[in-house]
Design a protein around this nucleic acid. Structure first.
Length: 415
DNA sequence: TCTGGGGTCCTAGGACCC
DNA sequence: TCTGGGGTCCTAGGACCC
């Protein structure tokens, strides 16, 4: 049996931990640049405010209901996630950290599943303060369904171990809410007469394979209780890494874009080294505001490959800037840029070039740089072209403190 | 004025090889 | 008019996830 543990309204729950005045009050957390709503408290959900809605479109509604608003504080959420996952580890030897707020657990061999999961739920809230819901089923897809219904059962735990319960739950699950069915497939399925998950469970294999590829077929089998999607206990290294971000305002000056590309290239290079990998391809892209209608949307990119793979920040920055200058046009107002690393290989298994020099000194420099930045804070040492003004940085006007990861941002308590 | 960021997998089709 | 068979690799595009 598999359990899916999902943190309830995770970002909002994290904010409430350190600001109890938010408890019971409608609260939302915004995306980067304070653009869209990416997390909602139950109160906000029942107001009918939708996920992903741009804030400026519903400003008056938020004000009317006195909704509390926070910028997203990923440093805090990532640390709280780590604590939740650690607690879950006490309840199963096999935990897949599926996303920042979800984990799949292997519960094979556990006799009283519901009781076990209730204890787990209580322990997570006692140790971390984060409320979670638990869905239990023989496959991941069914565990997802179970979890969805568990949110409304009252005690937060629902088991679909039983065939009859599975059918009942699938009858009450819209095709739109299935894990593996996005907007496109939902529309296609509705057109073909599939309304509920139960309809899809009974679908013809050949038809599903043809219309939804092998991925869809696996999902249908999972609905029948045949596990097809394994637990991934150790996350494999990323095959591509992206660092991209919208600016706080549009940019036209090459100098500003050079700073941004330098910062993004440095950031993505650091993540590459963290997973002990090397990359052989770098892409830089630029785009204007895609929602603005006065000017046509303009997006452009350029890619280059190195003779041999590297993890050297200065190499990525240097070539990133070359690519930037190739695609930069003076007459555009850019809102977003990014750097992508591709053709990633694990260190020690990389394809060597015929004429490569060995870059020993570079490896030691990167090690020293990462060491200093880890100890004294990000960007303590950086490449000069990152600049020190960085006036293009994103907006985060309503940011809470990094309560659990920074000594200088600890919560103050007065007695 | 204001609209997120970061990934994965599958398939079809083209280029290329012998 | 008629023009082989069998295969690999790469990429773009489309779908999905949180």
């Amino acid at each position: 049996m598999i359990a899916l543990v999902d943190c309830n309204n995770f970002y909002v729950s994290c904010e409430r931990l350190f600001d109890p005045t938010l408890i019971g009050r409608p609260t939302v957390v915004l995306s980067n640049n304070d653009g869209c709503i990416v997390a909602r408290s139950e109160e906000v959900k029942s107001l009918g405010i939708q996920m992903g809605k741009p804030v400026f479109q519903i400003q008056s509604e938020l004000r009317k209901h006195k909704v509390a608003i926070r910028s997203s504080n990923y440093t805090l959420y990532a640390d709280m996630s780590r604590r939740v996952m650690k607690t879950l580890g006490r309840f199963s030897p096999e935990v897949e950290n599926y996303s920042i707020d979800e984990a799949f657990l292997n519960l094979d061999g556990i006799s009283d599943l519901a009781e076990h999961c209730h204890r787990m739920r209580e322990e997570v809230i006692r140790w971390t303060g984060i409320p979670v819901s638990v869905g239990i089923a023989p496959s991941k897809t069914l565990a997802k369904v179970a979890n969805k219904h568990a949110k409304h059962t009252g005690d937060g735990v629902l088991s679909l171990a039983d065939k009859g319960d599975q059918a009942k739950a699938l009858r009450r699950t819209s095709i739109h809410d299935l894990w593996g069915v996005g907007r496109r497939y939902a529309r296609m399925l509705m057109k073909n007469g599939f309304k509920h998950a139960l309809d899809l469970r009974e679908a013809d294999d050949k038809w599903v394979l043809k219309r939804m590829t092998i991925v869809g077929l696996k999902m249908v089998h999972e609905l029948r209780g045949i596990p097809c999607i394994e637990l991934t206990l150790k996350p494999p290294p990323k095959k591509s890494l992206i660092k991209s971000c919208s600016f706080g305002r549009t940019l036209s000056a090459l100098g500003d874009l050079e700073e941004a590309v330098s910062v993004y290239a440095s950031g993505v290079a650091e993540r590459l080294r963290q997973q002990d990998s090397l990359a052989r391809t770098i892409t830089v892209f630029l785009m204007t505001n895609r929602f603005q209608t006065e000017h046509p949307h303009y997006a452009t990119s350029a890619t280059m490959s190195f003779l041999s793979s590297t993890d050297d920040t200065s190499v990525f920055v240097q070539h990133g800037l070359v690519l930037l200058r190739q695609i930069f046009r003076r007459d555009q107002r850019y809102l977003k840029a990014g750097v992508i690393l591709d053709a990633i290989e694990s260190r020690g298994r990389e394809q060597l070039g015929l004429f490569d020099p060995k870059h020993e000194s570079s490896a030691r420099l990167m090690q020293a740089m990462d060491g200093v930045n880890q100890q004294f804070g990000a960007n303590t040492i950086r490449v000069g072209s990152c600049g020190d003004r960085q006036e293009w940085k994103m907006k985060r006007r309503l940011l809470s403190r990094r309560f659990t990861t920074r000594w200088d941002e600890l919560l103050h308590v007065q007695t």
